[in-house]
Amino acid sequence: MADLITHGCVAVLFRLGQQSPGGVASFVAGTCLPDLSRVPAMLFTRLRYDAPWIPEWLCYVWGPLHVPVGVLLQSYGVALLFRDEQRRAAFLNLVLGGFLHLAVDVLQFHFGQGYLLLFPFSTWDWELGWIGSEATVPLVPVLLPLTSWLAWRRWRSSAGTTREA
């Protein structure tokens, strides 16, 4: 997976075309969800080095949160927490953000072990392998301020209007 900041920036850049920032926050949240939900997997994997009594399945059960079917389900679950009038839009933004996350991730190369995009219907795995798994790291110092500046420039007036309203 690419780093969370790159995912967030790509999501913001993806929505720069729209006039107002409406829906961007849930789109960015959607693009972050697949990685946030994998934090427990990383923690348990590291903890198992010193605590082998931690069951192995605890490291794996989070895997579906990073495949398309899991993105759909978790987006639906999170969208249920939104107000009725925003729920449908929130669901769409969360799902599309999640799919953008997966699209960015499949650019990476993991020595032939790709992502299970058709899980649970198939164990076929795939990735484009165009960039290394840390290729986005050197971009972050440029990408983050650039994205922040572009977003501020694009939406500063409408964001202020919406907040005042």
Binding site: S20, P21, G22, G23, V24, A25, S26, A29, L81, F82, R83, D84, E85, Q86, A89, A90, N93, W155, S158, A159, T162, R163
Partner: peptide, 14 residues
């Protein structure tokens, strides 16, 4: 986001 009436609301509109 803000929490209002037991639900999440996106501040800049959804």
């Amino acid at each position: 986001f803000r929490w209002r009436g037991g639900r999440i609301e996106e501040r800049f509109g959804g």
